[in-house]
Structures are given as structure tokens and as C-alpha cells.
Simulated assay, not measured.
Amino acid sequence: MRLIPAIIIAVALLIAPVLWIVLPRALDIGRKPVLGPDADASSIAAAVEDVIIENLNQENQVILLQESVEALRDTVEKLSTRVQKLEAEVAQAMVFGGRTQGGGTGGTGGSQDPIGEIEGSEYTEVVLIFDRTNFNKPLSVAGSSFIVELLGKPREVLSDNCQPMTNPKLKAMLRTEQVGPVRVTMLEPALKSLHTVFENIKRADPKLHDLINTAGALCVRQIRGTSGRYSNHAFGLAVDLNVNGQLDNFTDGKTQLGLTIIADFFHEEGWIWGAGFRREDSMHFEVSKEKLLEWRAAGLI
């Protein structure tokens, strides 16, 4: 582990004050003059005063040494605990790493050839999501009722399957474009925001950018398992992504390494990551309530 050298350096830094105090004292042993038989009273008094001062200094130095030792012990314990925690995390990542997910793209872009899969394998390794339920803070989810109140219904009658949007105002804002490595249909402000996300990803990690694929964006349907509740996909405000054509497992509390990297860029742009949902959905990204209110204030929706 890379923290082992850090522990050694920390120990050396903490021991240095101890050596600074102890070594000079050890080297001075036997060098102090001894009072002779002809010493007068003032010399004796001065010598006694020196001894008293010396004893007081020694006591202070002992206290300092004790404090240094305690600080050293605390630091070593903290570093040791951190090392153990990191070793456990690495062990977990090795257990989950390399487990491939179900194939199929469900969209455009991406690569299905074996060479591409090998080159992108590090991004599709499955890892645990740390503190996933707090990832989206301080952003908040835009619920179905909130979006309906803000934008209106995309269509009146819903089913579990994707259907055309019939709301004239929303339909007029729909655009189909190539955005970075994917081609999607979404509301125009969402497309522009998605362009920003992918531009930032490309600057930071061009290899990952080129491996991103989509499993769908606009889909006017109700949330599966519900009756009449609109999915954010129904408004053209959500997109499902995968890495290198490999779909992430749903609701297992783990995700692909590439999606964890992508999520930071979406969060910065004001999007919600589905990994933070009670039922983890790591492929899902949707516009946050705060972003929608920002667009409304700017007259974009």
C-alpha cells in the first residue's frame, strides 16, 4: 500500500523533536564542571540554582516527550486504521471487478467488437457505490406531479410502452441530435445541457467519452409498476447510458466504474443520478428540480 511510506515519514517527523531534546543531553553527560573544595557560598548557591533550574527543565522536557509519544501513538493508530479500510475496499473491488453485465446496446453508438470490449474493460468493472443515497445532494428529484404542473402532461393516456408525445408545446421543444457519442431525442434545453456534460467528459477522459452508449432517452410512458405516473423519460428530460455497450445491473447497489466517473459531470451540470434512488438505477440520468426551475426562470421552458 502507498500509505506505508506515509506512516514511516509521519513517525520520523514525530520522533524528530524527541531526538532534538535527548541527543544533546546525552552528549553533554560528564561535561559540566564539578565544584571544588574551595568553592565559596555564592558559587554553591549558583550551583544549587543551576541544579534546580535543570531539574525543572528536565520535568518540562519529560512532559513534552510524553505528549510527543501520545501524539505519535494516535497518528500511527489513525494511519493504521486508514490502511486497513483501504485494503478492505481494494479487496471488495477485486471481488466485484471484472463481472460482465448483460449485453445489448438499446441505442446508437458504442462498440461491439472484441477489441473494443478489451480496451474498455477497466470502465465496465463493477464496484460498490459509496454513500450512494447522498450522492445527488444538494440537488433534488423533480417528481412526476411537479413536472406536470410545470410543463403539462406529455400525453393524456399512458401505458407501459413508449408512445408519441401529443402535448403541442412540449412537442415543439423536442429535438433529435447527435450529442457527443450518442444520438437522442429530448427537450431542447436538456440537449444543450447534455452537450455540456459530454464536452466536459471528453476533455477529462476522451477514451471513456467514446465508449459511452445510450439505452434510450425520450419514451412517453408511465413508470413501470405504477398507474398514471409519468416517467421523466416521458418529458424528454432523462437519458439512460451504458459503457461499451454493457448494461449495468438494476437495483444491486453496484455499478460500472465508468458510470461513477460520468456521474460527477452530470451532477456538476445539475442532473440527478439514478444510483441515488432507493431502487438503484445507475444507468439513469435526469434533469434535477433545481435545473428545471433555472430554465423556467430563464424562459427556456
Rank of each mutant, 00 (worst) to 15 (best):
R183M: 08
L72P: 01
L139N: 03
L194A: 10
H209Y: 13
M165W: 03
L14A: 15
E125L: 02
I201R: 10
N200H: 03
R25A: 12
G253K: 10
D240S: 09
S282I: 04
H284I: 02
A297N: 11
L139I: 09
V90G: 00
L23S: 00
G103N: 09
R229S: 10
T75E: 07
Q163P: 03
G274P: 08
I21G: 13
G120P: 00
N244L: 15
W20I: 06
M283L: 07
E149V: 05
I212R: 10
L151R: 05
K137I: 06
L139R: 12
E70R: 08
R2T: 09
R224W: 07
E286H: 14
Q84N: 11
D248S: 15
T108N: 02
S43P: 00
L191K: 09
R278Y: 11
L170K: 05
Q112V: 07
A46H: 12
N232G: 02
G270E: 09
D252F: 03
R296T: 11
K254Q: 06
L259R: 12
I53S: 12
R175C: 04
V34G: 06
M94V: 10
A275E: 14
K137M: 12
G103V: 12
L211F: 09
D74K: 15
Q58E: 05
K291S: 08
L14M: 15
M173V: 04
E67H: 13
A47P: 00
